Amino acid sequence: MGITGRTTVDCSSRIRADRFTTVTQQRRDQFAYWKEWVAPLVDIERDESTEGGYFASARGHDLGSLHFASSSMDPMQYRHTEDHVRASGIDHWCLAILKRGNEISRAGDRVLTSSAGSLQVRSFAYPFVGRSDGTSSACLFLSRDNFPDISDMLDAVHHIGVTGSLVEVLKEYIITLEDYIKTLRVSEISLVVESLTLLLSAALKPAANNIGVAEMPIAAGRFNLARKYIQRYLASPDLGANSICRTLGISRRQLYYLFERHGGVEKFIRQRRLAACCKAIADPMDHRLINTIACSYGFTNQALFSRQFRAAYGFSPTEARAAGLSGHRPEPSPPKTFSEWLLRTRGS
Rank of each mutant, 00 (worst) to 15 (best):
G2S: 10
S49K: 11
S236N: 06
C94E: 15
G52W: 08
D179F: 08
L255W: 07
R27P: 10
T292V: 10
I90Y: 08
Y173C: 01
A323Y: 01
G89P: 04
I97F: 03
E215P: 00
C295I: 08
A312T: 06
S348P: 15
Q271G: 05
I104W: 10
Q120L: 15
F68I: 00
G324T: 01
T50R: 09
F55M: 13
G298P: 05
Y54F: 15
G324M: 08
I281P: 03
I174E: 02
H158K: 10
N146M: 04
N209H: 07
I189M: 12
Q26F: 05
G130A: 05
R321F: 02
G53V: 04
V265D: 01
P75F: 11
L289K: 14
T21G: 00
V23L: 06
M76V: 11
G221S: 05
E168H: 09
A214N: 09
A294D: 11
R122Y: 01
A294M: 10
H67D: 04
I230F: 01
A282K: 10
A125I: 00
P284F: 04
V213H: 09
G212L: 07
D91S: 12
E194S: 14
T197H: 13
G264A: 06
V213T: 15
D83H: 12
L342V: 03
P127Q: 06
T4Y: 08
I189N: 07
Q302C: 02
T4V: 15
I150F: 09
T176W: 10
S339L: 00
L170G: 04
S132P: 00
D286W: 03
S306F: 01
A32F: 07
G298S: 09
S114P: 00
H92T: 03
P317G: 01
R46F: 00
R227I: 02
Y297W: 04
L170F: 04
S114E: 11
R144N: 03
T135I: 15
D62H: 15
R246M: 09
M73W: 06
L258E: 08
E103A: 07
E168P: 01
I44Q: 03
I181K: 07
E36W: 04
P335I: 06
H287W: 03
A311F: 02
G108S: 08
E331D: 10
R252G: 11
G5A: 13
S49G: 04
S105W: 02
S316G: 01
V121K: 09
R106T: 14
F315W: 02
S187C: 13
H328P: 00
E36Y: 06
R329S: 15
G314C: 03
L304M: 11
P335K: 05
T113F: 07
R307A: 13
T318M: 07
E82S: 12
L142W: 08
T8F: 12
T318N: 12
I181A: 02
A219S: 12
R19T: 11
M73H: 13
S132H: 10
A32P: 02
Y313H: 09
T318K: 14
S49H: 04
Q231A: 06
C139Q: 15
M73L: 12
M76P: 00
F55P: 00
H328M: 12
S123Q: 05
E178H: 13
E215T: 14
R272L: 14
F315T: 01
G89H: 09
N301S: 11
Y126R: 15
D29Q: 12
S296G: 05
L140D: 02
I181D: 02
G117K: 06
I174N: 02
R46S: 12
R288C: 03
